[in-house]
Structures are given as C-alpha cells and as structure tokens.
C-alpha cells in the first residue's frame, strides 16, 4: 500500500503539472481546453523524435547521469520539446481560437473547437508515429530501497523534483515578472487589463506558450515514468480535469493539490480495481466534487490567480 502511495505521488506530481497548466490556460482563455492532454502527448512525442531519431543520428554522447535512465539527449530534448509544443499551441490559437475571439463566439464554440483540435492532434500523432507504444529507453535501472520496503526508481525522484521545480518556477514567474503580473491581471479582469494598456492578444500568446510548455514537460515526464502512446492525451483528460476542478478551476495552486490527490487515489485504486479503470476513478472523484463542492477544495469565487 505504501508503495502504491509512493507511485501515486509520482503520478500525482505529473498530473499536478498538467492540471496547473490546464487551469492557467482556463483562467485566461476562459474555456475548458479539451486539447490539453494532447498537448502533453505532443511534447512527449517531440522529445521521443528528438532523442530516438534526431540525436541518435548525431554524435551526442549518451552519457547518463548516475542512476537515471536517460542522459544528455533527453535534457537537450526537454527544452526543445517545450518550445515546439508552445509553437504548436500558439499556431492552433491563431488558426482556430483567435478567429473565434474576433467573431465573439460563445464559449461552447471554443469548447467544440478544442475537441476537434484534440482529435486532430491525436490523428497526426497516429499518422506520424503509428499506433504502437514507445519507450524513451530500454535501459533498466535498479530501484532504490527505502525504509518500509518502499522502492523508488531514481527517475521517479527526478520526476517529482522536476514537477515541483516547474510549478515553483511558474509561481515566481506569475508573482514577480511583469508579464506574469499582467497574466494575472488579465485573468482577473480582461476588460480592465485592456484599458490599462495590456494587449490581451499578447497575453493569449503567452498563456498558450507557457501552458503548452508545462504540458509538454508533464507529457515527457509521464513518458519517462511509463511509456508514450497516441491515446495518452485522451486518457489524461479526465484526471487532469478532475484535478483542476478539485482544486477549484482557474486556481493553479489548488490544481497542484488536486493533481496530487487524483494521482494517489488513482494508484491506490489499482489495489482493488483493474489499472485500466484509472480514468473512471478520476471520473468518479470528479462527480463527487461536483456534487459536494463544485467550487473545489479551495474555491475560486473570484477570477484571477
């Protein structure tokens, strides 16, 4: 059981990162983006392409770092994949959502559009990389033995630290940087932001870029932890939304906790249920939250982060 909780914390940290970025985007673009899971998949696959196709043909030393299963290629691929995924998201916004904003479409149209984008991304992943599972590496690394018979793979410690670092980085960015403050202002009161001289269209670009870069990281970390597959984005959708809603949608700090809770509950549920039921477990939590505390654990009675 403790082992499952430990696994749950790792999965939870990945979900937290995904849910934080989902809710960040939600707070500014003001619609539920059903393509968010698929942005995670884009990041994971771009990293796979870089590590296993591009870098493999270049002479990049495969030096690994101590007990970690990956090395320099992955550390190079990570920022590049973040950048590429950000570009994908910004281009999608320009092609699909910006014209909708310009025409003052109702929220429902954005939501339907995002579902189309989600499936289109997935179709492209299938077309380019095929339906098979992929692994970043075949290398096996021995797990570390901790007290209470808990085994943790070194990769998992890296994942946890990376997620925490990313979320902390986002926090500092939102609190300290000028753009971060402007993003918070736009989420709080878009009209007043425009009146203050903030070009909210630029804020949209920043939002998509940051949201997608964080989503890409979450996707890659999930790939390191398990494997990458074309449906990963779709399967992540329910846990991500459950985490975001549990934390109070639009509240990134709530999403952090929400992701942890969902991850742990999902892992622990495998003691009683088939692992394939994990999305359904997330769904049940989602429904319970909607019934009991629709504003989430920490509420979000007002806009803004």
């Amino acid at each position: 059981m403790i082992a499952l909780v430990v696994d749950g914390i790792i999965l939870g940290s990945i979900l937290s990162l995904g849910a934080v970025s989902l809710t960040l985007v939600y707070g500014i673009v003001r619609f539920a983006n059903f393509a968010h899971g698929d942005l995670m998949a884009v990041g994971a696959y771009v990293a796979f392409f870089l590590v296993n196709t591009v870098f493999a043909t270049l002479d990049i030393p495969i030096a690994t770092f101590g007990p970690l299963s990956f090395g320099l290629p992955m550390l190079l691929a990570l920022p590049l994949a973040m950048l590429m995924t950000a570009v994908v998201a910004v281009v999608v916004d320009r092609l699909v959502f910006r014209p909708m904003r310009a025409r003052r479409y109702a929220t429902v149209m954005f939501v339907i559009g995002s579902l189309a984008v989600a499936f289109a991304i997935r179709a492209l992943v299938f077309i380019i990389w095929g339906p098979e599972f992929h692994f970043y590496t075949q290398a096996l690394r021995p797990a570390l033995k901790l007290p209470f018979d808990v085994r943790v793979k070194p990769d998992q410690i890296f994942i946890l630290l990376a997620c925490l670092a990313m979320v902390a980085g986002l926090y500092l960015f939102l609190q300290r940087s000028k753009i971060g403050q402007a993003l918070r202002a736009t989420a709080d009161n878009p009209d007043l932001a425009r009146i203050s001289g903030i070009n909210t269209e630029h804020m949209m670009i920043w939002t998509w870029a940051i949201g997608a870069a964080l989503a890409a990281t979450a996707g890659i970390l999930l790939g390191i932890d398990s494997q990458i597959r074309p449906e990963m984005g779709w399967n992540l959708l329910l846990p991500l939304f459950a985490a975001a809603i549990l934390g109070g949608i639009g509240n990134p700090y709530g999403a952090l906790v929400g992701g942890m809770v969902i991850g742990i509950v999902q892992q622990v549920s495998t003691a009683f249920l088939l692992p394939t039921y994990k999305p359904a477990v997330a769904f049940v939590i989602l429904i319970l939250v909607l019934l009991i505390r629709p504003r989430g654990l920490f509420g979000s009675e007002q806009r803004g982060f």
């Binding site: 539920a32 059903f34 429902v108 394939t276 039921y277 359904a280 429904i287 629709p294």
Partner: peptide
C-alpha cells in the same frame, strides 16, 4: 443532476467521463 447547474464545460467533461467509464466497464 451534478452538472446541469454548473458552467456548460462541466457537462462536457462529465459526459466524456460517463462515456469512457461505460466503455471501460463493458471492456473489462
């Protein structure tokens, strides 16, 4: 019951959830 009093996106998420859960149940 849990979704129709809330924002429109919540029903969208919940209906995905019910469809996926139904498929998982019949599959497993």
């Amino acid at each position: 019951i849990p979704t129709l009093r809330l924002r429109e996106d919540y029903l969208a998420i919940a209906t995905i959830g019910i469809a996926e859960s139904i498929r998982l149940v019949f599959n497993n």
